[in-house]
């Protein structure tokens, strides 16, 4: 199985505090990879390394290597904006722009200077369809996105990421602010999306990781303790610390 992202010997420091220790990991193409672990274990920090969101944090220093399709993403010649079109991100709290539904999805293309209405119409419809939102919003594309429900807003954010045709979609607890029905829709969507995209998801719900991911990585205090197929990790983990965590005996 081909890997899209290859993380090697990654160390991350906030000032002098080390937050990630010697992470080695391959993210496989068209797989859903879940990061689990207690708060502060470094899972979101690692996720944010994958499209250089940590560049925005002062005094954050990274050592080691992350390769996307064989090219180093921390190379000084790497254009961060183009990296983020290839590695999209969906956050914990839906964060649509205070614009119309249509403009939210078209936003990235407009930033790239694409204003041809025919192209934009096509991309908006295709992205909303892929995000399983089209049927619900097709008659009100001009409506302000903030009037959508939380679950719809989150799917809109996914559509906005998809519009850029990324290879990888990062999701940081994408359903933690949603009710069970909206959560189920997003989970179903993730299953559909993996045919075309590689998905990395941080989740606090172990049941969610078990339901939707192919591979699961368990982190503890900045270390990758165990990465395995989800089936194996939840049935017969190799490491006692993984077993303690997934069976709720941590702490």
């Amino acid at each position: 199985m081909e890997s899209v992202l290859k993380i090697s010997n990654l160390n991350l420091f906030y000032n002098n505090v080390q937050a990630l220790y010697n992470i080695d990991m391959d993210i496989k193409m068209n797989h859903v990879t879940a990061f689990i672990g207690p708060s502060g274990c470094g899972k979101s920090t690692l996720l944010r390394c994958l499209n250089r969101m940590n560049d925005l944090i002062e005094n954050c220093r990274i050592e080691g290597s992350i390769q996307l399709d064989g090219a180093e993403i921390y190379d000084k010649n790497q254009d961060v904006v183009s990296l983020r079109t290839r590695v999209g991100m969906v956050f914990q709290k839906p964060n649509p722009f205070p614009k119309t539904i249509y403009e939210n999805v078209a936003y990235g293309l407009r930033c790239q200077g694409i204003n041809d209405k025919k192209i934009l119409d096509e991309v908006v419809e295709k992205s909303l369809r892929k995000a399983a939102l089209w049927e619900e919003v097709k008659d009100r594309l001009g409506q302000n996105a903030l009037r959508l429900s939380g679950g719809q807003q989150q799917r809109l954010c996914i559509a906005r990421a998809i519009a850029m045709e990324p290879e990888v979609i990062l999701m940081d607890e994408p359903t933690s602010a949603l009710d069970p029905i909206a959560t189920a829709k997003i989970e179903e969507l993730i299953q559909d999306l993996k045919a075309e995209y590689t998905i990395v998801i941080v989740t606090h719900s172990m049941q969610q990781a078990a339901r939707i991911s192919d591979e699961t990585a368990f982190f503890l205090m900045g270390e990758l303790i165990e990465m395995n197929t989800t089936k194996k990790l939840f049935q017969l983990p190799n490491d006692k610390r993984t077993e303690d965590y997934i069976t709720g005996r941590f702490g």
Binding site: M206, Q207, A210, F234, Q235, L236, P237, E243, I246, T247
Partner: peptide, 8 residues
């Protein structure tokens, strides 16, 4: 209680 691993 949704047990996993050895509990399951």
């Amino acid at each position: 209680l949704a047990p996993v691993a050895s509990d399951l």
